[in-house]
């Protein structure tokens, strides 16, 4: 059985063909190694990078952009969004700072991607 998907690793967006060869996933159409890894993962269990914003205690800048420390299963995206809704980032932040730890007890941290400086 062959399935065609679009690679999302880079802006090229190579069309990947995933086929099943004796229980092994075979990826063709990829322009680079990362595409092959993405295709294999996609066939087993799709993972996505989740980026969003969390609430802050600043009136001026009410949202802080964040990302999760690792890719999460696609079907759990909304569960993570709900958990992120509970977070309030207080004070100043720079990209790379850990805003919250161990979301959904899955070992996934919330990392700031933007800067928040009070009085700037």
């Amino acid at each position: 059985m062959t399935k065609t998907i679009t690679c999302i690793v880079c802006p090229r967006g190579c069309p990947l063909q995933l086929s099943d060869a004796q229980g092994q996933v075979c990826v063709t159409g990829n322009g680079c190694k990362r595409g092959e890894a993405y295709g294999k993962q996609e066939a087993i269990h799709p993972l996505r990078t989740l980026t969003t914003t969390v609430c802050t205690d600043s009136k001026e800048w009410p949202r802080l952009p964040v990302r999760l420390s690792q890719d999460i299963p696609l079907e759990q995206v909304f569960a993570y969004m709900k958990a992120l809704d509970e977070i309030v980032a207080r004070g100043c932040w720079a990209p790379g700072d850990v805003v919250a730890q161990n979301l959904l007890d899955a070992g996934v941290d919330v990392v700031a991607t933007g800067e928040l400086v009070y009085g700037s």
Binding site: C10, T49, T51, P65, A94, P95, T113, G114, E115
Partner: peptide, 28 residues
């Protein structure tokens, strides 16, 4: 870039997938 919180920026320039705010911050 400050409002482009999704990732996919900087793959050619920095060799990694950055969000818009991260890309902006590095240059700032």
């Amino acid at each position: 870039l400050k409002q482009c919180v999704h990732d996919g920026f900087g793959l050619f320039r920095f060799g990694e997938k950055l969000t818009g705010p991260e890309y902006a911050w590095r240059y700032a």
